[in-house]
Design a protein around this nucleic acid. Sequence first.
DNA 1: TATTTATATTGCAATATTACGATACTAGCG
DNA 2: CGCTAGTATCGTAATATTGCAATATAAATA
Lengths: 110, 110
Amino acid sequence: MGITKSEHFTDEQNELATLAKAIGHPARIAIIQHLINVNSCMCGDIVNELPLAQPTVSQHLKELKNAGLIKGNFEGNAICYCLNEEGFNKIKSFFQHINTYLENKKNQCC
Amino acid sequence: MGITKSEHFTDEQNELATLAKAIGHPARIAIIQHLINVNSCMCGDIVNELPLAQPTVSQHLKELKNAGLIKGNFEGNAICYCLNEEGFNKIKSFFQHINTYLENKKNQCC
DNA sequence: TATTTATATTGCAATATTACGATACTAGCG
DNA sequence: CGCTAGTATCGTAATATTGCAATATAAATA
């Protein structure tokens, strides 16, 4: 139905899913990578970096912001975007957990 | 349009997005967590663990499998699913890159 | 072979996402 | 104030995702 039954899952599961989903689009991956490359904060010229129209980029930025993966500060009439540690820290432990498990597993199955 | 302009992005960006997208659903997070918990491989009783109907679970498993995050082996008439290191390793370096960046950044902006 | 068990596939309805043109909003500048 | 540059929001079309009932498939077992 296109509707996710979030109420049946734990808060942690829903939160991790929201974060992963926000990352799950090539344009948003590109935005994250670009924010890492231009070490100092970037503003709206992210639009120039992407093959997408300004409203579309704006929408992607909004989703990353809502998920807590980036933050944006007003600087005059422009906006300075950068990565938000908080969001990434939340996913970090999830993947660390998986990696630890996979390292110890040693093909017990499959 | 619901259509992603994948052709405008790099293979790496598309691949990372596909992986993240596959993880970006609470049911699929739950499946991954369950596969970690029951250290030995699980079969179809994942269905019993989730508040979803069997066809829905089957569909989620398929998506995780297509993304390369799990694999499934036939064992008699049942199927043994487990995590697939390959898929997780691909995301690993992406997040490590981000973490290294964030650790060195020290609030230069925003 | 018929039955059971385990899983996948099909088909469809409901909803979500993606993309963009048009437009609105906001801050700085002349 | 009027204008411009930078962003956000609205509205809408196209497509994707989610979920499930019904059904198909496959292996084991009686």
